[in-house]
Simulated assay, not measured.
Amino acid sequence: MPAVTKRPVGVFALFAALVGTLAAVVLGFLTFGAQATVAPDHVPVAVSAPPGPLQGLAHQLAGHGGTQLDWRVTDPGQARNLLADKEVYGVLELREGPAATVVLSGAVNPAGTQVAQQALAGAAQALPGEPQLEQLHPASPAGRIVPLAASALAWLGSLVAGAVLVRLGAGRRISVPVRLAQVLGAGVLVTGVLAGFTALWDATLPLTWDVLGFLFLTVTAFAALQAGLLRLLGIKALAVLAPLYLVAPAVAGQVPELLDPVYRALLWSWTPFRFSTEGLRSLLQGVPGAPDVTTGVWVLAALLVAGLAVVLWPGRSAREEAEADLPHRVVDVGVH
């Protein structure tokens, strides 16, 4: 019988140190790196004025701000439409009178709103009179927090549910109906939890069928996507799915114009959290027809379909999987 070769303990210690170092690099890149490199870069804002001399003043204001701001000069009606569609984060309205008005919206990402308010208020200081502030769709503190919190909790809750199912079914074949039941169960229960938190944090936030339906779509889409990867990779899929949870507060909570171009291209451009967060924000603030709601529904529905396709894809039979799990099975080759 050949002797068993034992690897030195130092090899395992070195490997463990390398894994820990890699984890620190990944987590640092996903979280603190995105926050530490935040800086305004072509933040879209608008300045509006009626036809006449104020149009010239509007163009003069738009010529300032460098690369930090991306000004759009338009008329008052069009400017407010741009704000409603979230194509700009704030509007500076010039009118005949003593002062200008800074127009903001609670349906816009708070990070973009804060930058726009500071920039527009600074530009208005060059005008006569004290600038006025007008808030469209005013958002409470909970209204600003709930969209991102709901997205993160939806991902985490459905991920834990999927991981527990894989762990409890270790060594056994998990059937398709069981996987579907886990996806649907997580969708119903986690949606109920999110609705409960929303009502607890701010009872004035609307829990309409549009909001509840969007929450349910978000949770089931996340759960289906995770269930598909867990079926393909097993518990090892957590190495991919768990770190993505950290992307929510660090990246999806920002607007792209504040992120470093590297984070904007590699993380923000594809993370599913931004679609669920911004769509839910519009619904909670009473803007159901906003473009990000439609985009969010299409993206989340695509994730749901893709995840369910993997879950429903025919696999090996129960006998084949059981035989594959046997470490020392006898194979009949037809020789007796």
Rank of each mutant, 00 (worst) to 15 (best):
V4C: 05
R7V: 01
R7Y: 10
F12Q: 11
L14E: 08
A16T: 04
A17N: 04
T21F: 15
A23W: 14
A24I: 05
V25K: 03
V26M: 12
A34Q: 13
T37G: 05
P40G: 09
P40W: 12
V43Q: 10
V45W: 06
A46S: 12
A46Q: 08
V47L: 10
S48L: 06
P51E: 09
P53I: 00
L54N: 02
G56Y: 03
A58P: 02
A58D: 01
Q68F: 09
L69W: 05
L69G: 00
V73Q: 04
T74Q: 11
T74H: 09
G77M: 06
G77A: 14
A79D: 01
A79R: 12
L83F: 05
L83W: 12
K86C: 01
Y89R: 13
Y89E: 09
Y89P: 01
L92N: 07
A99I: 03
A99P: 02
G106I: 02
A107M: 09
N109V: 00
A111Y: 06
V115W: 07
Q117G: 06
Q118H: 14
Q118L: 12
L120S: 03
L120M: 10
E130A: 12
P131K: 08
Q132E: 12
Q135C: 01
V146A: 11
P147G: 06
S151N: 11
S151P: 03
S151M: 13
L156K: 08
G157T: 02
S158N: 11
S158V: 03
V164M: 14
R173E: 09
V176E: 10
P177I: 08
V178L: 14
L180I: 08
Q182S: 10
Q182F: 04
V183N: 04
A186H: 05
V190K: 06
V193K: 11
A195T: 06
W201G: 07
A203T: 06
L207G: 05
W209E: 12
V211M: 13
L215W: 11
L217Y: 07
A221S: 14
L229G: 00
R231L: 09
L232P: 00
L232D: 06
P243T: 03
L244W: 11
Y245Q: 09
P249T: 01
G253E: 00
D260M: 02
S269I: 01
T277A: 15
T277W: 02
E278P: 04
L284G: 00
Q285T: 04
V287S: 08
V293R: 13
T294F: 13
W298H: 10
V299R: 14
A302K: 11
A302C: 08
L303G: 05
V305Y: 09
G307V: 02
A309N: 11
A309L: 15
V310C: 04
V311A: 02
V311T: 04
L312V: 03
A318D: 13
A324E: 15
L326N: 08
H328N: 14
R329S: 10
D332A: 12
H336S: 12
